[in-house]
Design a protein around this nucleic acid. Structure first.
Lengths: 191, 191
DNA sequence: AACTTACCACTACATATGAAGTGGTGTCAA
DNA sequence: TTGACACCACTTCATATGTAGTGGTAAGTT
């Protein structure tokens, strides 16, 4: 098992692209090698088997989806209004939508998780923590709404993103943007 | 190309199971033959290629998810209250969740649609019509809420189902059920 | 400066899996 | 007897995996 961390990360990122492009079943050592532009056999030297590749890709997607301290810090300076929530939700959806391959890879992994208990555990923990973080942050920020509000936004906006990334013409570009605001309007309680 | 319609339907239903079990990439003629319990080569005699199998599976899932006149008729006898909406949503989620393989197959097809324009068109039309039917039905039923209400329920409950079917332990069984009601509470306007 | 050790990139091979398609045979019914 | 279908076998092709082996480079040692 090789150690070089940059190369390792590059391979995992390549794996994410492969997942998005070709699906979970298309994720092979060779496909990752090709995507990463490294010689055949390299990925095989870095990961014991496909499972390792899958779980590490799952973790990496979350790592890359993390908004980072800049965004979080900025959010805390906003007034505690529904308008601020609206703005934050737009930002979040755009940020996630922009990482198309990551989101699609995540969906592939979810489906793969129905067949692989180990992967399922890893993903369950990640998602659970992620939801909880969102709830904690929302409550700490003093924005209007409770834990259920956050969960509802999580549910509806996730499917909205899925819809945009898989069947963009179901709702058009504009309608999808309007639906973000509609979600906030309906879900976040008046102050 | 063979004609026998029962056998054809049986093969498409087998394809749905294969999609759910093994993913889009696992959908091969042989896998369908095996799943359907027919001799190798049969599916190949009924469908010109994989694309035909995929698109027909997509249509079939919707066909099988259709609630049927009994449910629709009953819904129209309900009082026009938020409680009725709550009940209908529970029914719908249960009905869809019960057809696990169909829903998972649908998700596989969505992801596959990112790579296949033809499939994408078919699915886009199906989903669009489906959403529109839901809106029309809701408005015709006189239940509280407008078109946006229906869309929001569509978004949030779909992701809730996805969560239950792929990572059931993120929200437990009970919490998931409670979230259906929470969605209705937050999204359907007071009367 | 020469030697040693460890790590890594890359290549190549042995093996396995499984898919597609086609053509042929048997069977039943009109 | 002719046509449609079910079933089966064989060929061809494509692609995966895991591992062994080769050579290069960098760092530390004597």
């Amino acid at each position: 098992m090789r150690q070089n961390p940059e190369r390792r990360t590059a391979l995992i990122d390549a794996a994410i692209e492969v997942l998005a492009d070709q699906g979970a079943r298309g994720l092979t050592f060779r496909a990752v090698d090709t995507q990463a532009g490294v010689p055949i056999g390299t990925a095989s030297n870095y990961f014991a088997n496909r499972d390792a590749l899958l779980t590490q890709a799952g973790q990496r997607v979350f790592q890359r989806l993390d908004p980072g301290p800049a965004v979080v810090g900025e959010a805390l300076t906003l007034p505690r209004t529904r308008e601020s929530v609206d703005r934050l939700m737009h930002e979040m959806v755009e940020r996630i939508t922009a990482f198309r391959s990551g989101y699609l890879a995540m969906l592939e992994l979810r489906l793969e998780a129905t067949r692989r208990p180990e992967l399922r555990e890893v993903l369950t923990k990640q998602i659970r923590d992620n939801v909880q973080e969102n709830i904690d942050f929302h409550l700490a920020s003093g924005m209007p709404g409770d834990a259920d509000t956050v969960v509802m936004l999580y549910l509806s906006l996730n499917w909205l993103i899925l819809e945009r990334l898989t069947l963009p013409d179901v709702f058009g570009e504009d309608r999808a943007a309007a639906l973000i605001s509609a979600a906030v309007d309906q879900i976040v309680p008046p102050q």
